[in-house]
Design a protein around this nucleic acid. Sequence first.
DNA 1: CATTCGTCCTGATAGC
DNA 2: TGCTATCAGGACGAAT
Length: 332
Amino acid sequence: MPELPEVEVVRRGLARWVLGRTIDDVDILDVRSIRRHGLGAEDFAGNLVGARVLDVVRRGKFLWMPLAPPAEAGGTATSGGTSGVAPVALMAHLGMSGQLLVKDAGLPEEKHLRVRLTLSAVDDPDAGPLPQELRFVDQRIFGGLFVTSMVSTTDGHPGGLGESPLPLIPVEASHIARDPLDPAFSFDDFFAKLRRRRTGIKRALLDQGLVSGIGNIYADEALWAAKVHYARPTDVMRRADALRLIDACRDVMLRALDAGGTSFDSLYVNVNGSSGYFERSLNAYGREGEPCTRCAADPLFDSLSLIRREMFMNRSSFSCPRCQPKPRNGRW
DNA sequence: CATTCGTCCTGATAGC
DNA sequence: TGCTATCAGGACGAAT
């Protein structure tokens, strides 16, 4: 279940293996994986074949590769060759189960292989011939690929962590807020927007327009770490508590990143196919009925400190009843 | 505008 | 055994 740390692991892998390479061929095995490319499969492939990968950038859970367009496409639109063509990027979202795998051509097709990009042959002085396929594998098809144009970022800073030199972002990611690991993330902006909302804090954390990169797992982990109940109202939230929560988000995601991403089954695999192992250090998510690791050390530990599971926003929420108590009469 | 809800998907698992 | 129901959940568009 890729959230920010997992997508960042993929981004780094792609930067290592795909940067600077030209796309020689595109093979779409399931059109549903390019659903968001409104102009269809032919247009998708036409935009990619001959294009060169200039960068690998991420904001929140969106990942994109700005492209140098195919030579003839650039020439057609602007015969002078000046910057008349809108910059385009190959956008990717992994959804629930998406993977981007760099593989040698000829290796067996994955069961859920949806799109295959064949990359230019490169003989690396150290690594030898680089794998020539970038495969998009996705069991549940919540994720996908599409080609889109890029627009200026509203704050003039480059798109997220990926250190794109240009302050450009794909249209479809322009409404996505900065994530807590982004150098341009502003806590003050986040807090101001948070206070204007009339909703619960977990809903806010999952709203990618407010703060990005956080999904159900890291939301529960950060709320646990900051000892905050998921339904706590945002409009009266104290600044110090919000700061503690964002710090917790940052902390848990950085630790996951160090571990190479979280994985609960074989669905999530990084760009080279190896699984993460951060699940061993989860404190709340998926631990229903198990003792809260923090409360267990307390001499007053009792059955009130078993992790509870509740349905919230049509998804499971895990929390400790003792250190994340429910609001009483709407007051905290 | 802000907020909530239904939809898209497959496969593992539980229950009859 | 074999069927059906449930669950997992990110993002988006429609509805309120």
